[in-house]
C-alpha cells in the first residue's frame, strides 16, 4: 500500500485544523495569557485572588443552572419518551415543534419572555381577566424568571439527545421485557431508562454548560439584580483594564465545566458497563 491515502486524509482535515487553531486554540491561549499576567506584566495568580468578589456570581450561576438542568430533565425526558412512542409521522412534527424556538433569535426570545412575565404583561392580563383587577403575579425580575429563561432556551438540547437514544432502542427489547413479566412502568425503569443513560448524560451536559455560562437572560429577566458569571465576564471584557480578571473568570468557569463534564461522562461509562439503575 502506498502512503497516499493517509496523506489525502490529513489533507482533507486541513481546513478543520486551521479552523480549530484559529478559533479554538488561539483564543484559549489568549485567555490563559491574560488570566496569568499580573499588573507588572509577569506571571501571577493575582487575577485569581481578585475573583473573591465574584463568589456570589459563581455560586448563583452554578445553582441556577443546576436547577434549570434538573427542570429540563424532568420536563424533557417524559417529552422525549412520549415523542419516541409516537408514529414516525407524528415524531417528525413533534421534533420540529421542539426545535422551532431555536430558529428564533435568542434576544428576541428573551424579550418575548420579558413581555410575557411583566407585571403588566400577557400572563398577568389573562390572570386579571379571570380573577379580577387586583390580582398581579410578580414574576419578572425574580430568580424564578431567570431560571425560566434558561429552561425555555435550553430545553431542546435536553429533549433531542434523549429522543435520539430512545428512538434507537430496539422495540423488541420492550416486547421481551413485557414477555418476561414487566408492566409498562417496569419496562420503563428496568430497560428503557438504563438504556437511555447516554442520552440523559449528553442532555444534562448540553443544558448545564450553556446555562452556567449564560449572560443577558439575567439582565433582562432578572432586572440586573442577579449577577451571573456570564454577565460578569461580559462586563469585565467591556473594560480594557479588567480584561485579566475577565480572563481569570473564564478560566475558572472552564475548569468547572470540564470537571462537571468529566463527572457526567464517568457516570455514563459506569452505567454502560452493566448494573441495574432501579
Amino acid at each position: 500500500m502506498t502512503p497516499r491515502p493517509k496523506n489525502r486524509r490529513s489533507l482533507a482535515a486541513a481546513p478543520h485544523m486551521v479552523w480549530a487553531i484559529l478559533f479554538i486554540v488561539a483564543p484559549l491561549i489568549f485567555v490563559a495569557v491574560y488570566a496569568f499576567r499580573g499588573q507588572n506584566g509577569g506571571f501571577s495568580f493575582e487575577n485569581f485572588a481578585a475573583l473573591g468578589d465574584y463568589t456570589d456570581a459563581f455560586v448563583r450561576s452554578a445553582s441556577y443552572s443546576l436547577i434549570a438542568t434538573v427542570i429540563c430533565l424532568v420536563i424533557g425526558y417524559p417529552l422525549a419518551y412520549a415523542i419516541s412512542l409516537a408514529s414516525p409521522k407524528a415524531q417528525r412534527v413533534l421534533i420540529m415543534m421542539v426545535m422551532l424556538p431555536m430558529w428564533i433569535n435568542f434576544l428576541i426570545r428573551t424579550y418575548a419572555i420579558m413581555k410575557l412575565l411583566e407585571d403588566t404583561g400577557f400572563v398577568n392580563s389573562v390572570l386579571q381577566k379571570i380573577f379580577g383587577e387586583e390580582v398581579t403575579l410578580h414574576m419578572i425580575n425574580t430568580p424564578g424568571a431567570v431560571i425560566f429563561g434558561m429552561v425555555y432556551d435550553y430545553l431542546p438540547y435536553m429533549v433531542l439527545p434523549i429522543f435520539t437514544v430512545l428512538s434507537k432502542i430496539d422495540p423488541k427489547l420492550g416486547e421481551a421485557a413485557s414477555d418476561l413479566g414487566c408492566s409498562k412502568i417496569q419496562t420503563l425503569f428496568r430497560v428503557t431508562l438504563p438504556l437511555s443513560v447516554s442520552g440523559v448524560v449528553s442532555g444534562i451536559t448540553m443544558v448545564f454548560v450553556p446555562s452556567i455560562s449564560t449572560f443577558y437572560i439575567s439582565q433582562k429577566l432578572g432586572g440586573g439584580q442577579y449577577l451571573l458569571i456570564g454577565d460578569a465576564i461580559e462586563r469585565a471584557f467591556g473594560n480594557p483594564e479588567k480584561y485579566s480578571v475577565g480572563a481569570a473568570m473564564s478560566f475558572v468557569l472552564m475548569l468547572i465545566v470540564l470537571v462537571s463534564t468529566a463527572i457526567m461522562n464517568r457516570f455514563d461509562r459506569d452505567n454502560a458497563k452493566g448494573g441495574v439503575v432501579v
Binding site: D170, E175, A176, L180, N271, G275
Partner: peptide
C-alpha cells in the same frame, strides 16, 4: 415466554 428471532437480549 418467547425466544425472539434476533434474541432481544438486554444489552445493559
Amino acid at each position: 415466554n418467547t425466544v425472539f428471532q434476533r434474541y432481544a437480549l438486554f444489552p445493559h
